[in-house]
Design a protein around this nucleic acid. Structure first.
Length: 301
DNA sequence: TTCCAGGGGTAGA
DNA sequence: TCTACCCATGGA
């Protein structure tokens, strides 16, 4: 028997689900399943107490309603505490509590490709847990996007929890699950290459309390301190730290990778080699919004 | 077959 | 702080 609940989550007046879902590649990384045609995505998520549910997030058919819909399907009874938990997760994933008015003012002032963001865009999709986002960021390093998708699909298929034995979808495995695994078994089931030991090491640090990533969500924690802690994690360098800071709602740093280098060479340096400092200085006037200014200019190009 | 990807760790200077 | 070299894996 499947239990079903339909939740409604209020959003800011300027919230744009389609923009958030298409903002970067996260929406297609397992366990997310993207349905672009109907502007929705679903994923299997663990509920408190070890139960599991499939969540489907979609926009209201009437955009003026300022809400998103969350359909919940579970083989277990869906408790009121589950509904509260799911809404909290969704608020985090969609960044409904972030304040973007200063960024939108800058977009309006700057115009050009940024003018289209001023109506409320800029929220980039994230995962429910910091562990999932950390693992996903590590899995974007030194690999093509197809490889990232493969690695995360393998990880979910190997160690995620079923929503039901008859259905293939699984949760993203939590840190405790991975921390309990033998490295040889893990590597034989999930081909992460040299990243495997980074992911397992991270899982153990979180599960055994040596790393408290939850503190990074404290708005009073200085960005510099978060960055220092991120860079201390094996497998996280400057690119990955900038990506994680973005996922934490801090947009000061630009992730310098092949995507950045290729875009900058083409857009600002006539296809020639360039000095990194000169390239980064192009976004200096965006202050704490540099990441968003670069990213949305790049994906618009 | 070789190169290298939404880079990062380490050793040595 | 900077550089050289190494790292697993698979697509091109």
């Amino acid at each position: 028997m499947t239990h079903i609940a339909h939740l409604s989550l209020p959003t800011p007046p300027d919230f744009d689900l389609a923009s958030t879902l298409s903002s970067h590649g996260w929406v297609v990384l397992s366990p997310n399943v993207y349905n672009k045609e109907i502007n929705s995505f679903s994923r299997v998520e663990a509920l408190p107490g070890g139960r599991v549910a499939r969540l489907t997030v979609s926009s209201s058919t009437r955009s003026s309603q300022n809400k998103v819909n969350i359909a919940v399907e579970s083989p277990s009874e869906i408790l009121s505490s589950d509904k509260k938990y799911i809404k909290e997760q969704a608020r985090h994933i969609l960044r409904l509590d972030e304040e973007y008015s200063e960024f939108h003012d800058l977009c309006r002032e700057k115009g050009g490709v940024w003018a289209g963001l001023a109506c409320g865009k800029g929220r980039m999709l994230r995962s429910p847990s910091l562990f999932e986002d950390l693992v996903k960021v590590i899995c974007t390093t030194n690999i093509q996007w197809g490889g990232t998708r493969r690695m995360l699909a393998e990880l979910v298929n190997a160690f995620g929890t079923h929503v039901s034995p008859q259905q293939g979808e699984r949760t993203f495995p939590d840190a405790h699950t991975l921390a309990a695994l033998d490295e040889a078994l893990f590597s034989s089931r999930v081909r992460l290459g040299y990243r495997g030991k980074f992911v397992l090491g991270l899982a153990k640090d979180l599960a055994e309390g040596r790393l408290d990533a939850g503190r990074w969500l404290d708005p009073h924690m200085p960005t510099g301190e978060i960055k220092k802690q991120l860079l201390a994690i094996k497998g996280i360098g400057s690119y990955a730290a900038a990506s994680m800071l973005m996922l934490l709602g801090r947009y000061e740093d630009i992730p310098v990778d092949t995507v950045f280098r290729e875009f900058m060479a083409e857009k600002y340096f006539q296809g020639k080699e360039f000095d990194l400092e000169s390239a980064l200085s192009i976004y200096a006037k965006w202050g704490k919004w540099k990441y968003l200014a670069y990213w949305f200019e790049m994906i618009d190009a």
